[in-house]
């Protein structure tokens, strides 16, 4: 009985390790590829025979990935705080105040969540051109400043806060804004972090909109830089693409490792246009 239990356990572990190989394997293969020296054949073996960082240096010096990383950092650093402020503000009256037009606004916001981006990308492209937002950082984040998804997520969080906490503050003479800032917002911290993570990962990896709105290479984000690099998908370029891919993934990976417990929340409201 004891040995059977033991065997069972080993079997379960083996299955789990096998699945882990599938989910992590492509990363490891890409990582090893990025460490291969220029003289080495790309598919001779999985492990690099002679480890070198020259592909990473090339990514910065030849492929201009330093600039692309910087652009992506700027865009993300703009998008995340703006998104948090605008969404958490807008969600408050939708959760707690009774006013004419509330249902209309709420319906409108939920309705826009269902609209696929590909429907309105052409009009948006024309609009950003007319407003002078082509090839600007601001032009890249216009869809992330205030998102229907973010407002919806924050509203769900506010609703779950007991009303009594706010009421006592009103008695102490606080106004709506103070109550939002000092009571509601601190209590919604986990949701705020979830939303920040969501906006971060989305903006960091966004591809289609930057592809349309960026026309000069110095404005490229990492997604566009990688896509452009991969247009030449031959052997010699493969190690460089791998190095750039690893570089592009490290920041999201770090965030994930440090804020793991909040990632569960990102599956809450899963539709986004």
């Amino acid at each position: 009985m004891q040995t059977k239990k033991m065997l069972n356990k080993i079997f379960v572990y083996l299955i789990m390790i096998f699945i882990a190989c599938i989910t992590v394997g492509p990363f490891l293969i890409t990582l090893f590829m990025s460490l291969k020296s220029p003289s080495e054949g790309i598919y001779e073996s999985i492990l690099p025979q002679q480890m070198t960082f020259s592909n990473y240096i090339d990514a910065f010096e030849k492929a201009n990935f330093g600039q692309y990383l910087l652009n992506t950092v700027i865009v993300t650093a703009l998008a995340v705080p703006l998104n948090l402020v605008f969404c958490s503000l807008a969600a408050y009256p939708l959760a707690r105040m009774d006013f004419r037009g509330r249902e209309v606004v709420l319906t409108l916001i939920i309705a826009t969540m269902m609209v696929p981006f590909q429907l309105y990308m052409a009009p948006l492209f024309q609009l950003t051109g007319n407003l002078g937002l082509r090839n600007t950082y601001f032009g890249l984040i216009i869809l992330q400043i205030a998102t229907a998804f973010g407002i919806y997520l924050m509203r769900q969080s506010y609703i779950s806060i007991p009303k009594e906490l706010e009421e006592s503050a009103f008695i102490d003479g606080a106004n709506r804004f103070q109550v939002w800032w000092k009571i509601v917002l601190p209590l919604s911290k986990p949701t705020l972090i979830t939303l920040a993570i969501y906006t971060f990962t989305f903006t960091w990896g966004d591809y289609l909109w930057p592809l349309l709105n960026i026309t000069t290479s110095e404005m490229n984000t990492i997604s566009i830089g990688l896509a452009k690099l991969s247009q030449n998908f031959d052997g010699a370029n493969m190690k460089l693409i791998s190095a750039a891919s690893i570089l592009s993934t490290i920041p999201t990976l770090l965030i994930f490792i440090f804020l793991q417990k909040y990632f569960v929340g990102t599956t809450d409201g899963a539709i986004k246009g």
């Binding site: 492509p26 293969i29 890409t30 590829m33 591809y207 990688l226 993934t249």
Partner: peptide, 14 residues
Amino acid sequence: VTPMVVAALMWRML
């Protein structure tokens, strides 16, 4: 948490 572009290129390589 991998950017989709990276995932696509990794698999294209595989």
